[in-house]
Design a protein around this nucleic acid. Structure first.
Lengths: 356, 356
DNA sequence: GTATACTTTGCATACGTATTCAGAATGCCT
DNA sequence: AGGCATTCTGAATACGTATGCAAAGTATAC
C-alpha cells in the first residue's frame, strides 16, 4: 500500500534499513553468502515495506549479462514451431532467463535482425528456421555472443547447431517405402534452401538410388498446406502417378492427403503418404498420418545444454548435436510387416559430431 | 575487420572522432537536430570504423524507457495464437520495439509472472489468454506500466482491453441455427473461466432463449481437439442427439467433425457444426468448417494503438475496444438462405466502449 | 596477550548512455 | 562596433546496481 509513483531503489532500502547500498545489493545477489542473517532480515523487511525489486536493467549494465536469450524465428505459424517456442520459453523461464523474440519476415533477412538483437546484448542467440550468413555468425562469435542454430546449420560458420537427423529420417522413409513394395516414390519438397529440406531429400533419394530405385518424382513445395495440396494434385493427375509420397513436413502431408481424397485416390490402399515432424494434427482421426517424429523435447534440452555451456565458457568451440527421429506408424501408409513387431521404445540418443 | 574483443563505446568513438561523448550520443539520438552535419559525418565515420552500436541497456537505464513490450501468453500452441503472436511481433518490430515473451504455465499464475515482467521495466504489457487479478492490474497502473488485455478482460481492473465481440458472435450463431430450422442446439464450452468462453456461451444461449428455444445441450470442453472430439462423441451418442453444435473455438469444432465422421453422422446433412476463430485448418478440405472469424488484424492494430496512446500518455484512463466477428460460411453447417446473398464485405468496425 | 584467519560491512568506482547547463562560435541587426 | 539571438559543443552529472578493496569486528590458536 505504499502506492507512490517512483520505484524504490536499493538506496532507499539501504536508508530505511540503516545499512549501505552495497549490503542491499549483496542481499539480492545470488551469492548471498556474504551477508549476516540478521542484516539480511532487516534488509528484506525494508525491501518488502517499500515494494523494492532490483532493477534488472541496471543490473545488466553492471554485470554485462542480461539473462536474456534472443530467439529468431521465421515462421512462428508453421504448426511445428509453436511447440518448440513454448518449450524454449518454459524451460528458459524456469532457469531464470527471459526470451526476446524476433521474427524474420520474408522481406527481412536474418542478418538485418541480428544487429538489432546484438544491441540488446543478449547472453545467447537461438536461431530457428532462418538462414544466417556465416559472416554474421563470425561477427557474433567475435562479440562473444554464442549462437545456436536449431534445425539449421551453416556449414563453415562459427555457430553451434542442434538438429534432428534429417538425412537419416529420409533414409528411413526410403527403406519403409521399398520394404513395403512401393515402386513409384515421390518427394514433395519444402522451402528450397532450408537445410531440413535439403537433408531430408538427400537422405531419401540417396537411399532409393542405393537400393536400385532409379527414378523419383519430385515437386517443389513450400512447407505449407496449400503447397502440399497443389503438389500432390499435380503428382496424382499424371499419367503415371506415384504410389508413395514422402512430404518434407507434416503440414504438406496433410494437404497431400486432402488432395488425394478430393481426387478419390484411396490413401494407404493406393497411395502411401509419410510426413515429417509429428505435429498434433497428424494424429487427428481425419488424417492418421504416418510420420517421422522429431524428438522436440530432447532437441530443446540439448539446445539449452549447449547454450549454458557456451555462456559459461565463451571460449569453447562450437558444438553440433544430432537427434534421431522416430517412426510413428499410423494408417496413411502401407508399411512393411516388421514395423508392428518392433514397437520397442525407440529412445532418442543424441549424437554429437559434425553436421557438415 | 577491427575484430577485437570489447565492444566499442561512445567514448571510444568520441576519442577517435575528436569530439565529446555527448556529441556522439546526440548523433545517435532520435532528435538529431542538435549536431552540425560535418560533425555528424565525422562521428558516423568513426563509429563505422569501430563497429560501434549504441548500447541499448545503458540507454534504457538512462532514459527509463526500454522500448520493450512484454507479452504474456498462456497457450502459444493453441492454433489461433501463433498468428496473433506473429502479427504482434512483426508490427512491434517495425515500430522499433522488441518483444519479451512470457508464458504462464498451468501451474504458474499470471500474477507470479508479472513481478518478473515488471523487473524488466517493459514499456507496456500485453496479456493474452490468461487471467489477471485486478490487484495486479492496479499494481501495474501504479508503477506506470500500461496493461492491455487481449481477448480477455477483468471487470473492475485498471487495464485496457481489446477483444472480439464474443457475445455478439454467440448471438449470431444462435440466429443462424434457428433461421436454418435447427431444433436441438448444443454448446461445447471452452476453458471454464475464460471470458471468451463465458461471453460466447452467454450470447448464444441468451439469444436461443429470447427466441423461444427452451433447451440447449452443453458439454464442458477445454479448447483442445481432444476435448472437442470427446464432447461431440458424448453428445452424438445420446438418445436425443443435437442437430447443431456451436463449439467455443475452431480446434474443438475440428474434433467434433472428426467425432461425427467416426460415428457415421453426416456433417451438414444431419448435423451442423459452427466454430469460432477461423484458424487455417478450418478451411482445409477435410473440414470446411463454417466459423466466426476473429478480425485478428484489426484487433492487433487496435491493441497497438491503445498501447502507443497509453505509453505516450501514462495518465490516460484505460480504454476498451470491441471488434465484431464475421461469419465465414463453409459447408459444415446448414445455413439460412439469406447468407449466400449477403456476401457483402463485412467490414470490421471497432467499437469503443465498456466491456463490463 | 598477540598473531592469524575469517566474516561482515562500507566506500568508492565502474558499467555506457542521455541530458542539463553553460560557454564558445557565428550571424544578424541597428 | 556592440548587442542579441541562434547554433553547436563539452563538462558534469544522473540512471541503479555490482564489486574490488580496505577497515572493522569476531573467533581461533598459540
Amino acid at each position: 500500500m505504499t502506492g507512490l509513483k517512483k520505484k524504490a531503489t536499493s538506496i532507499d532500502v539501504a536508508r530505511l534499513a540503516g545499512v549501505s547500498q552495497s549490503t542491499v545489493s549483496r542481499t539480492f545477489s545470488t551469492d548471498r553468502s556474504k551477508v549476516a542473517p540478521e542484516t539480511r532480515e532487516k534488509v528484506l523487511a525494508a525491501a518488502r515495506e517499500l515494494g523494492y525489486t532490483p532493477d534488472v536493467i541496471a543490473r545488466s549494465l553492471s554485470t554485462q549479462r542480461t539473462n536474456i536469450v534472443g530467439i529468431v524465428m521465421a515462421d512462428i505459424t508453421s504448426p511445428f514451431y509453436p511447440y518448440v517456442l513454448e518449450l524454449f520459453i518454459t524451460e528458459l523461464q524456469e532457469a531464470g532467463r527471459q526470451v526476446l523474440l524476433f521474427t524474420a519476415g520474408p522481406h527481412q533477412e536474418v542478418d538485418d535482425i541480428l544487429s538489432l538483437v546484438l544491441q540488446y546484448r543478449v547472453d545467447a542467440l537461438i536461431i530457428t528456421s532462418a538462414t544466417l550468413s556465416s559472416e554474421m555468425a563470425d561477427e557474433c562469435a567475435r562479440e562473444g555472443t554464442p549462437v545456436i542454430l536449431f534445425n539449421r546449420y551453416v556449414p563453415g560458420a562459427a555457430a553451434s547447431a542442434v538438429s534432428c537427423d534429417n538425412a537419416e529420417g529420409g533414409r528411413l522413409v526410403a527403406n519403409l517405402f521399398l520394404d513395403a513394395d512401393h515402386v513409384r516414390p515421390a518427394y514433395i519438397a519444402g522451402v528450397k534452401n532450408a537445410s531440413t529440406n535439403i537433408d531430408r531429400e538427400k537422405g531419401f533419394t540417396d537411399r532409393l538410388r542405393e537400393r536400385g530405385q532409379r527414378e523419383c518424382l519430385r515437386e517443389q513445395g513450400a512447407y505449407t498446406y496449400e503447397s502440399g495440396y497443389e503438389c500432390a494434385r499435380r503428382l496424382l493427375q499424371r499419367a503415371d502417378p506415384p504410389d508413395a509420397i514422402f512430404c518434407a513436413n507434416d503440414i504438406m502431408a496433410l494437404g497431400a492427403i486432402d488432395a488425394a481424397r478430393d481426387l478419390a485416390v484411396r490413401v494407404s490402399k493406393e497411395l502411401s503418404i509419410i510426413g515429417f515432424d509429428d505435429i498434433p494434427a497428424a494424429g487427428w482421426s481425419a488424417y492418421s498420418l504416418t510420420t517421422i517424429r522429431q524428438p522436440v523435447n530432447q532437441m530443446v534440452a540439448a539446445t539449452l545444454e549447449v547454450l549454458t555451456e557456451q555462456v559459461e565458457h565463451p571460449e569453447a568451440k562450437p558444438v553440433t548435436k544430432l537427434a534421431p527421429g522416430t517412426l510413428i506408424p499410423r494408417t496413411s501408409a502401407r508399411l512393411p510387416s516388421y514395423v508392428e513387431s518392433s514397437s520397442q521404445e525407440n529412445r532418442a540418443v543424441i549424437r554429437t559430431g559434425n553436421l557438415g
